[in-house]
Amino acid sequence: MTIDAGRWAELYRLEFPRVYRALLAVLRDRDRALDALHDAFVAGLRRPPAHDADLAGWLFVVAVRSARRGVRLPSFSLERVRGRSGEGDIDALLDRMEVGRLLAGLTERQRAMVVAQFYLGLDHREIAAHFGVKTGTVSATLAQAKARMRAEVRNAS
C-alpha cells in the first residue's frame, strides 16, 4: 500500500522518538541527529518506502546516510565558548551511560549496526537490506563490534 503524505507524517511522528534516540547514540550530536532525521522525513515525502513495515529501520538508515554526506557548518555560539553547549550535555550523558561507554569505542558504522540490532530490533537480514550490504558483512561488522564491547566490559570490571 502506498504511503501518502498524511500517513507519512503520522508514521514519522510515531517513530521519531525511537529513531532520534538511536541517532543520538550513533552520532552523539543533537543537531546532527535532528537534521539527519529531518532529511529522512523529506526523503520519505519525496519517495516514501514501499510499505510501512519496519519504518524505524528505514528512517534510521536514511538519516545515518544523510548525516555522513556533509559536515554541518559550525556556528559561533557564546554558550559553546563558555562550555554550556547542548552537545556537551549529550556527550556527558552518554558517557555516564553503560550504553554510551560500550558504543564509544566503536566506529560510526559499527555503532549504527549495533544500535539497529539492539535498540531498533532489526535482524541481520534487515540491517543488510537497509544498509545495502551483504548479510555476511553485517555479521562480520557486528562480531567485531561485540568483541570490542566485550573488551570494554572486561576492562571496566
Binding site: 521519531f16 534516540r21 543520538l24 551511560m97 550504553v99 539492539f118 535498540y119
Partner: peptide
C-alpha cells in the same frame, strides 16, 4: 544488552515537539 540499550536510550531527552512534529 537489548534490555540495557532500551532502558538507557529511552531515557535520552527529546527535542521540543515544535521542532519535529509535522
Amino acid at each position: 544488552i537489548e534490555r540495557v540499550f532500551r532502558r538507557e536510550l529511552d531515557d535520552l531527552p527529546l527535542p521540543p515537539e515544535s521542532s519535529w512534529v509535522p
